[in-house]
C-alpha cells in the first residue's frame, strides 16, 4: 500500500489536485496573514500601517508577555510529561489486561473526550476552589496556579495518550514479552527492555500532542488560571477583548517557528529510530487496525 504510482491525467485527477491545493491555501491563509501582520508598524494588529521590525523588539522586551509564554511552556511540559507517563501505563494495561476494569476505564476515557471543554472548565474551577490545599492560595509549598494548569490540562491529554498507546500495544505481538518472561526477565526489566522501546513512538506522539493541546488550551485555562500565572492563550484572549497589538502576532510567529523547528528535529529522530509516526492519526481514526 505504500508504493507510489504514476498519476493519470484525467478530469477527476485534475479536479482532486486542484482541490488539494485549494485546501492548503485555505489552511495557510490566516497563518500567512498573521505572519505578515506581525511586521505591522501600526498600533493595532488588524490595521496595516507599513512594514516594521518594532513589534518583534517590543514583544521580546515585554515582561508580561514573556512571563505568560514561560507559564504556558511550564504548564505544557508538566502536563504533557504527567499525561505521557500515567497515560502510557494505563494504555498498556488496558490493551494487555482486557476485562471489566479495562472496559469501565475506557468508558471514562470516552466520557472525558466527549464532554465539552466549557463543562470541564467550570467543574474544575469549583473543584479547585473547594479542595484548596495545593490548588488554593493558602499553601506555602507549591505554585498553585501552575498546579491547577498541570492537572486541568492533564485530564484530556491523559485520555488521548491512553488511546494512542492502547492502539499501538493492541497492534503489537505479545510473544516478545512472553519470550522475555520465559527467559526469566523480571516484570520491571521486561517492561523497560521490551515493552517500553516498542511503544516509545506512541508515547512520543502522545507527549507532543498533549504538549500542543496544553499550549493552545484557552477555555479551561481561562477558568482555572490565577493572576501571576496567566498562560499565553489567556493573555491573548484578554487582548482580543481589549486592544490587539501587533506584538501578539510577532510573539506567535516566533513560537510557531520554534515549534516547527523542534518538531522537525523530533521527526528526524523518530525516523532515524525506525519508529512510525502515524500513531497519532491511527488513534484518531479509532484505534487498532
Amino acid at each position: 500500500m505504500s508504493r507510489g504510482r504514476p498519476t493519470p491525467t484525467d478530469g477527476v485527477s485534475i479536479g482532486l489536485w486542484t482541490w488539494g491545493i485549494i485546501v492548503f491555501i485555505f489552511l495557510f491563509a490566516p497563518i500567512i496573514t498573521i505572519v505578515v501582520y506581525s511586521f505591522n508598524a501600526g498600533r493595532t494588529l488588524v490595521v496595516w500601517d507599513g512594514f516594521s521590525l518594532d513589534p518583534y523588539v517590543r514583544a521580546m522586551a515585554d515582561p508580561t508577555m514573556a512571563s505568560s509564554v514561560l507559564t504556558s511552556i511550564k504548564a505544557a511540559l508538566g502536563s504533557a510529561a504527567f499525561a505521557a507517563v500515567i497515560g502510557t501505563l494505563a494504555g498498556i494495561a488496558a490493551a494487555r489486561r482486557p476485562g471489566k476494569w479495562a472496559a469501565v476505564f475506557l468508558v471514562v476515557v470516552t466520557l472525558v473526550l466527549i464532554t465539552p471543554e466549557i463543562v470541564d472548565a467550570i467543574a474544575l474551577l469549583i473543584w479547585f476552589v473547594r479542595m484548596g490545599g495545593p490548588f488554593g492560595p493558602d499553601n506555602q509549598f507549591v505554585d498553585y496556579g501552575l498546579m491547577r494548569l498541570w492537572f486541568g490540562h492533564a485530564i484530556f491529554s491523559t485520555a488521548v495518550v491512553v488511546l494512542i498507546v492502547r492502539a499501538r500495544v493492541s497492534g503489537m505481538d505479545e510473544s516478545l514479552e512472553e519470550a522475555a518472561a520465559d527467559l526469566y526477565a523480571p516484570p520491571w526489566r521486561r517492561f523497560r527492555q521490551i515493552t517500553l522501546p516498542l511503544v516509545f513512538p506512541a508515547v512520543m506522539v502522545g507527549f507532543l500532542l498533549s504538549f500542543s493541546l496544553s499550549l493552545d488550551n484557552t477555555i479551561i485555562s481561562s477558568f482555572v488560571s490565577v493572576a501571576g500565572s496567566t498562560p499565553w492563550p489567556v493573555y491573548v484572549f484578554s487582548a482580543v477583548r481589549g486592544t490587539l497589538r501587533p506584538e501578539l502576532a510577532s510573539m506567535s510567529t516566533v513560537m510557531l517557528l520554534l515549534t516547527v523547528l523542534s518538531l522537525a528535529a523530533v521527526g528526524f529522530v523518530l525516523r532515524r529510530g525506525g519508529g512510525s509516526s502515524s500513531e497519532l492519526t491511527q488513534a484518531l481514526a479509532g484505534g487498532k487496525q
Binding site: 491563509a29 490566516p30 506567535s252
Partner: peptide, 10 residues
C-alpha cells in the same frame, strides 16, 4: 501550532 485565537483573528 499557531495559537487558535490568532488564527481566528487572521
Amino acid at each position: 501550532w499557531t495559537n487558535f485565537l490568532l488564527r481566528t483573528i487572521g
